[in-house]
């Protein structure tokens, strides 16, 4: 019976340890999740900028394509 009691106590400790570990894991998880949201937001921002830049470039490319041969001819 004494040995059983000791075992039960050991399990109590192990359970407490497990609880702490899962708690720690959840903290880390939340940090990583926050980082992930930030990455996603920055990516969205960059994608928006890329789109804007592309819209700026397109007419310039069209202009370059039309004026360059014209100047060669002139």
């Amino acid at each position: 019976l004494m040995r059983q009691a000791a075992h039960v106590n050991a399990w109590d400790q192990l359970l407490q340890q497990g609880h702490d570990q899962v708690q720690q894991l959840r903290l880390t998880l939340n940090n990583v999740k926050t980082d992930q949201s930030r990455l996603q937001a920055e990516l969205d921002f960059i994608q928006g900028q890329q789109q804007e830049l592309e819209q700026l470039i397109e007419p310039l490319e069209a202009a370059a394509a039309s004026t360059t041969p014209a100047q060669h001819q002139g």
């Binding site: 990455l39 996603q40 990516l43 960059i46 890329q50 830049l53 592309e54 470039i57 490319e61």
Partner: peptide, 20 residues
Amino acid sequence: MVKAAIQEAKWKQANLTRRV
């Protein structure tokens, strides 16, 4: 998914750089 999207953004960036 984020990783793939960032890879795509990298390619697009390279393309934009070349065009500019």
